[in-house]
Each structure stands twice: as C-alpha cells, then as structure tokens.
Nucleic acid binder design. Structure first.
Lengths: 346, 346
DNA sequence: CTGTTAGCGCGTTCAT
DNA sequence: ATGAACGCGCTAACAG
C-alpha cells in the first residue's frame, strides 16, 4: 500500500463552469476575451474559479478543435550527437525561439541524423505548424532532406542553404557567406598573398562551401595567379585541426595565408603555428569566419567575418509567422549581409 | 483572384480506412503496432494507403484521447534576450533533447523573463508532460519561479539549483560547483596565494554562488588567513569584465590570484593583465570555471574546472522519462562530479 | 481478425 | 448575456 495522493483529475472548463455557476461556453468566452458576451461580474467570478481550481487550458483539445498548431518545429540534421552544441546553431535557435515565443508560439527542437528524418516523431506525426531546418551533410544528402520536408506539405524554412524552390512553400534564409569569402580573398590579395591554404571540416556544411566559392571568385577576379589548397579536418576539434595542419606542413612549404572555415579552426591552426615558432602575421596570415566573441579572446586578435546568427533566427521567426498569417512566404530567399572584421592576424 | 491551389484537406484515419476498405479501428491498430489483431495482408494494404495518401497522425487528437503529453517543456528564465546563446545552457539542452527524442518525446523550449512565467503559453496552457528549468536571478526570484512551476502540479526538474523540496514532484540536477570552488581554493592555497580576487557577473546564478561558497570553505579550512574580494561585472562581455577589473586595480594592489566565475570572464581578465604588462602566472595567477573547449584556445592555457553540461542534460532526460513511467522521481537530487584541470595560468 | 460505439476537452452554431 | 447540441481525429472497450 502506497501513501501517494490519489491522482487528482485536472480541472476542465466544465469544472470551472460548475464552480462559477455558469455554462462552459461562458468560461470559454472569458478565456478567449470575448468580453462583449459576458458581464463584468460574471467575468470576475469565472476568473476567480479559474485561479482557485488552478485551471489550465488543454492545448491538445483546443488545437484539435480549431485545427491549428501553435508550435514550430526546429529540426537539426547532423551526425554529431551534440548537434545543438554548435555555437552558430545555438544563436539561430535563440533568435528563432524569442520571436516565436513573443507571438505565443512554441518551438519544438529535434536533432537527428539524416537517415532518421522519415522515422522521427516530428515528421511522422502532424504536430507542428511548420519546419525550420539546419542541415549538415553532402549536397545530395541535404537536397534529399529538404525534399522530404517539403513533401510534408507544410511551410519550410532552411538555414544556410543557397537554393530557391520556386513554387514550393519554402524559404531559404542565410548570411552572405560567399560575399564573406570574397572579402577575405580581396583582403589577402591586397597584402600580396599568393599561396592560400584553407582548412575545412570533413563534415560538409553548405555555408562553408559558399565561403570557399567566394574565395575562389576573388582569386579568379584577380587574374588567377594565386593558388588555393583545401585540406579537410576529421572534426572541428582542436586536436584534429592541428593534426591535419601538421601533416600538410610536413611536406609542403608554409603558405602565405591560412583560412579557417570558422574561428575555432583558424585559432587552432594559429596556436599550432605559435608552438612551432612561426610568426603571425609576419610569416603566415590567418583568417577565421564567424566572429564569435569567445574566439576573439585569443591573441593576437583574429581577423574574421562577423556573422549575424541570432538575427538569422529572428528573421526566420518573423518569416514563419508572416507565412502562417498570410498563407504564403513573402520572399523565397533572404540573405543577410556579413561584416569584415580586420584583426591583428593579417 | 489568386492562383493558389485549393487547400487540400489533410488525410485522416477515416480516409485511409476508406481507401484500404477497412474500418478506422484497423488502421489505428496498424499504426500502433497491434499486429496481433490484423492480418499481414490487411497490414500491407493499409500501409500502402498511408504512404499513398501521405497520412500523418494528428498528434493533438491522439494525445487528447490517450490523455498524455509527448513533449517536455524546457523553460529558461533569464533577463537576456539571447538566453539560449549561453554555451552552458546550449549543452544542457542538447543532451536533454537527445535523450527525450530517442524515447519519442519532443522538447519544447521557451525562454522568458522571470515576470513572464505566469503569463507564458507553456504554463497557462496544459501542453507538456513536465518541466525542466534553468533559472537566473536572485535567490528570492529563483525560489519564486520554482514555486510557480511546482504549483503547476507536474513533474519539475531544475538545473544548477542546490535545493531539495521533500515531498514535491521535483528533482534538482546540478554539478558539484561547490566542490569545484574548493578545488580551486586548495590549488591556489598550495601555491601560497593569500589575496584572492573573484570576478562574477552581476546577474545572479546559483552555480556561481556555489563556486564562491566552495572557495570560501577552502579558505576557512586553511585557517582564514587569506583574503577574498568579490567584484561584479555588469555583464559577461569582454568589455564589461575588463572595465570592472581596471577600476578595481586602479586603487588596489595586484591580488595573488584572479578567479573568474567562468572561463570567458577569466580570459577577459587575463588579456587585460597582458595588455598592462602583468605576467601570468608569475605576478598573478588566473583560474576559470567550466572548461569549454573554445576558451582553451587562449594562451597560456587556462586553469579551470571541467563541467559536464551535456551530461547534465542527459541525466535530466533520463530522470524525467523514468518519472513519467514510474510515477515519481527516483531521487530528488542528483549531483554530477567536476574535474579540476590544471593549465598554465597557475 | 475486424467493426461499432462512445467520449477525451474544447469551441462553434444556433437557440433562448 | 447565457445554454445545448454537435463534432474535431483518435482509440478503449466491447461485440461479432
């Protein structure tokens, strides 16, 4: 025999109605602010009973009845289990959640590997009003994931994906990574760098492909005299980055500049050089990408490109709310500018 | 006149049943894996129609019927709009989401200021099966927030809060911040430090109070000969930290050690010292807290205390799932160990 | 193995 | 200004 209290049934609209001696309809009117139909005195009485009974509206029943979802799904497709641990993704999610919350929407986050997309609750059930997605993987994998989401026949926003799907209920929101790559190229070319080494993570991110594309555009526009070598690190971890840099430098001359696909990679490379008595920027120049405050803590301060991840999330939130109200996305693409931030490493 | 396609009604169980020429109940049985009650041939037919019609189960209707919520709410109470941008919180949320997702639960995140707790959707509506909370603010504010959550009469887990609520449907999950503080104190006392300066953010975090408490315990155990001064920085930003450190040092002698409430603060302080030709660790020793990889990028490598934020989230997910199954929390408190990580700054 | 009935809690429609 | 009846989509209980 246990001492647990008997499971008290949660109060419903009916219970409140009975307690306040009105009909359920009147309670509903109070809850939904239809004050035209209810006297001030009744309203007071109903509200007191709501408070007293601790009544809370059953969201499932309401959403079922009004056939609407008050939640947006944020799906993060990534091989890593710590999907959300990525700082960029965090910022995006924070901005998105804030905008949605202030419009009384809820954000449902779900991380998964690419192959889990079809079996996950959030896609097999109908439980959110639309999807926002941050997707890693090869170009093909990403396209497949996007198609699966779009096939769900609900509004879809993807981050950091440079595509448009005309006619689809779809919107791509990203920062101008390609432009950022060009800015880096131009900056280094102006400093007479001729031999570029780019260090990217093995995991394919579309934004990183764009950064490289922009860099290549810059080199090509300059006449094509400069060389670019790209090497991939198993992960973005400190150790893996230093490892791949070490292996490359073992049988290659020092490049004029090392470009990290993001700030942590650039910083790891820089510290490797320090430990081997290479001077920055005198011997090798270093550039990162994304400008998160944490990585500016290293000295000398990294030259980088600031990205507006939080604003990306906010933008997505606004676009989704607008879509839900108006029935369609105002734009199918939205590109936010980046800002070049010259530090002391170039 | 618009060219939009007419809103196609979403397929229901009835539609699938009609198309497969069976009763809705049979479709439901297939969906829920009650294969004992349905022949293989029927199952095939039903599954084909589900696929063909793109049927997805209406979560609201199901949850209403079975009177259960398949989502857990994560509420983050913070004054800052970028609540989720905190790296520690990100890690916790990632671990939590992964555990819940793999049990086919969903995570609903909601950030808010303390005074919004009562008016927010997630608490006014009944829409999640339980709450996990990360709460900032003064001790009083935090207690009030916890009480409000517990009063909702649903399972509640709070992170980083050193309290127990015997008898309540409640569990506190945290790391051993106090132990970490003691480790720091012991480490520095062994190096003959007598004058300690702690730099904390103005925003009250319980974990940070614990770290200071542990530090004080260590000093007291040593005989109380050492002095501890605590100064607060307006925010955790680089600029604010350096500002408050500068102001303090303007009319105080250099302390033997500076203890940052977390790694970013410690790093900001360290870089300030560098810029003023103070040597670390020769003139002043520096210690951080939390051991995030990013902050180890600064040189010399910071002495810090590693925290297992991701595991904290995982632990919460497991505890919540267990609570939902068994009807009560197995433990009302769970403290994860921390690990002292000696770097080059002490 | 399959179908029928009833009702989860809420909001809408129509009546009073 | 308030109430009664109905149904949203789904599933538990029972009948066949």
């Amino acid at each position: 025999m246990t001492n647990e209290a008997p499971a008290r049934r949660r109060a419903t609209i009916k219970d409140v109605a009975k307690a306040a001696d009105v009909s359920p309809m009147t309670v509903s009117n109070v809850l939904n602010g239809r004050l035209q139909y209810v006297s001030a005195a009744t309203k007071k009485r109903v509200e007191r009973e709501i408070e007293r009974l601790g009544y809370r509206r059953q969201a499932n029943a309401r959403n079922l009845r009004v056939a609407e979802q008050r939640s947006i799904g944020m799906v993060i497709v990534d091989e890593s289990p710590a999907f959300l641990a990525d700082f960029f993704t965090c910022q995006v999610v924070a901005g998105l959640a804030n905008v949605l919350n202030s419009a009384d929407y809820t954000l449902t986050v779900q991380g998964m590997r690419g192959d889990q997309l079809e079996t996950s609750m959030i896609t097999r059930n109908f439980e959110v009003g639309g999807f926002c997605a941050m997707i890693a993987g090869s170009g093909e994998e990403r396209r497949a994931a996007i198609r699966r989401l779009v096939d769900l026949d609900q509004p879809v926003i993807v981050f950091q994906e440079p595509i448009t799907l005309p006619g689809a209920d779809f919107c791509a929101i990203r920062q101008d990574d390609r432009g950022g790559g060009r800015l880096i190229g131009d900056h280094l070319l102006a400093r007479r760098v001729e031999d570029f080494l780019a260090v990217v993570p093995a995991q394919d991110w579309p934004a990183i492909e764009e950064r490289l594309a922009g860099l290549r555009e810059s080199l090509a526009a300059n006449g094509g005299g400069a060389r670019l070598t790209v090497i991939a690190s198993a992960s973005e971890s400190f150790a893996d980055v230093q490892d791949v840099v070490a292996r490359h430098l073992a049988d290659h001359p020092l490049p004029g500049a090392i470009i990290g696909a993001n700030d942590p990679i650039a910083t790891a490379a820089m510290l490797y050089l320090f430990d081997h008595d290479v001077r920055v920027p005198d011997d090798v120049r270093i550039v990162g990408f994304n400008g998160f405050e944490a990585h500016r803590y290293a000295r000398p301060r990294l030259t980088t490109v600031d990205s507006a991840a939080y604003q990306l999330g906010e933008q997505a939130g606004r676009a989704m709310l607008e879509r839900l109200e108006s029935g369609r996305f105002a734009r199918n693409e939205c590109v936010l500018p980046v800002h070049f931030d010259a530090g002391a490493t170039t």
